[in-house]
Design a binder for these strands. Sequence first.
DNA 1: GTCTATAGAAGGATAGAC
DNA 2: GTCTATCCTTCTATAGAC
Lengths: 198, 198
Amino acid sequence: MLGTRERILTSTGELFRRQGYNGTALKQVTALADAPFGSLYHHFPGGKEELAEAVIKSSGQAYQTLFELIEDAAVDPGSAVTDFFDGAAAVLEQTGYVDACPIGTVALEVASTNDRLRQATAEVFASWVDTAARRLASHGVAPARSIELATLLVAAVEGGFMLSRAARSPEPMRASGRLLRELVESELATVRTVTTTT
Amino acid sequence: MLGTRERILTSTGELFRRQGYNGTALKQVTALADAPFGSLYHHFPGGKEELAEAVIKSSGQAYQTLFELIEDAAVDPGSAVTDFFDGAAAVLEQTGYVDACPIGTVALEVASTNDRLRQATAEVFASWVDTAARRLASHGVAPARSIELATLLVAAVEGGFMLSRAARSPEPMRASGRLLRELVESELATVRTVTTTT
DNA sequence: GTCTATAGAAGGATAGAC
DNA sequence: GTCTATCCTTCTATAGAC
């Protein structure tokens, strides 16, 4: 049995994924976490905002770990891309298009309304981009170019979640992954060519 | 002076862009539209849901028109891509990262909570993808391939809005546009090569 | 048909018993 | 420090005056 604080965090993350920040009531959170309502304010004295910040940071970290695991398991960066996009598409299908990114919806909701939470989402995105960019750079892609590619990868994942959930189809997510794999592979081919030529 | 119904529609769209569906109160809408509260229910008897559906459809149409104008003005499909992404980035900068896509936030919020609105957003996205795909197809890209590319373009725009608003920087949107321009241009180069060769 | 006042429900937050 | 009962605000929606 996990601690109450942990259960509140994971329950909030789950609800944020499907309903967003404003759509999630704290009573719903404690009900799902099977915790008394008061314990939420015991563990998060700052209320909904503090809870949300903690959820953004912890689930941002969780996704980053997941991404690293997939990348480590893949034979090359190109297949890591499709592994990740296809994996996200499969999860969407299996969960009735409910189980998406816990950051995305919240990020759009708070971007112009809550600067503390906006900054928390920005740090998560930056960390994801940084992780992906380092991987690309380790395969010889120039640093600035790696950041551009990594940014597009993260943006396309988030957009893929949006389109796939709206259409209730895995295709937008999968199609994005296929094309971005091509882009990454042609980039790596360029690197190899340049390296060989030089 | 526009009609009351029109003012309510545009005000709601404006608020949806920066606050989303759940974050926008109907009193806020009527205040911004300078309309008495009751007139909202006169023009939209179905309340918030009916209003939201109308906003999704009308602003979806408006964005499609904007996209077509940019495409018509561009010298080639590649520059149309960067024109669009750079234009979106410029609007974000000029408006303090407030004036983004009126559909995106709402789409994520309602995807698992309101099937009528989910379907409305899905139709808008499908219509955007269809428009972009037709343009690509008219330049010789195979139909299925055109749909894939168009899907990625729309997904990347939405993801670009998300990352740029979170970071309060135009770079994610611009970087995505630069890379996708390359992708589109290399696709068109392939088409020309194949056409020439055949 | 335009507008105000209010109903009824749900939200976040807190006080205080144990 | 765990939990319940309640406060106050805000939301959507409606009733009804004009």
